[in-house]
C-alpha cells in the first residue's frame, strides 16, 4: 500500500465514520475534531479491516500517542509493510 493509497483510505474512513472532512494533515484531531479514545478504538477496528488482519496488542498500544492524520497514515503504511 502506497502512502497516497493509505491517505485516501483513511480520509474516507474519517469522513464516513467520524464526520471529519479533509482535516489539516498535522492538526491534533482530538483538539480540532473531538476525536477521542472511543473514536481511536473504532478507527483501529477500521484499520484492521483495511489491512485484512488482526492487530496485535503491541501494535495497538503503539497507536496511543497518535494525534494527526499524517501520524495515522505513517502508522498504517508501517503496519502494511510489516504484514507483507
Amino acid at each position: 500500500m502506497t502512502r497516497e493509497q493509505a491517505r485516501d483510505r483513511i480520509l474516507s474512513i474519517l469522513s464516513e465514520s467520524f464526520e471529519i472532512e479533509n482535516p489539516d494533515p498535522d492538526a491534533d484531531l482530538r483538539a480540532q475534531h473531538m476525536f477521542d479514545s472511543i473514536d481511536a478504538i473504532e478507527l483501529l477496528a477500521s484499520i484492521e479491516d483495511l489491512l485484512g488482519r488482526e492487530l496485535s496488542q503491541e501494535e495497538k498500544q503503539r497507536a496511543v500517542d497518535i494525534r494527526s492524520l499524517n501520524q495515522i497514515v505513517d502508522y498504517v503504511v508501517e503496519l502494511a509493510g510489516a504484514g507483507r
Partner: peptide, 10 residues
C-alpha cells in the same frame, strides 16, 4: 467479541 463496538457499553 471483536465486533462489539467501543461505544456499545456506553
Amino acid at each position: 467479541p471483536k465486533r462489539i463496538g467501543a461505544a456499545d457499553y456506553l
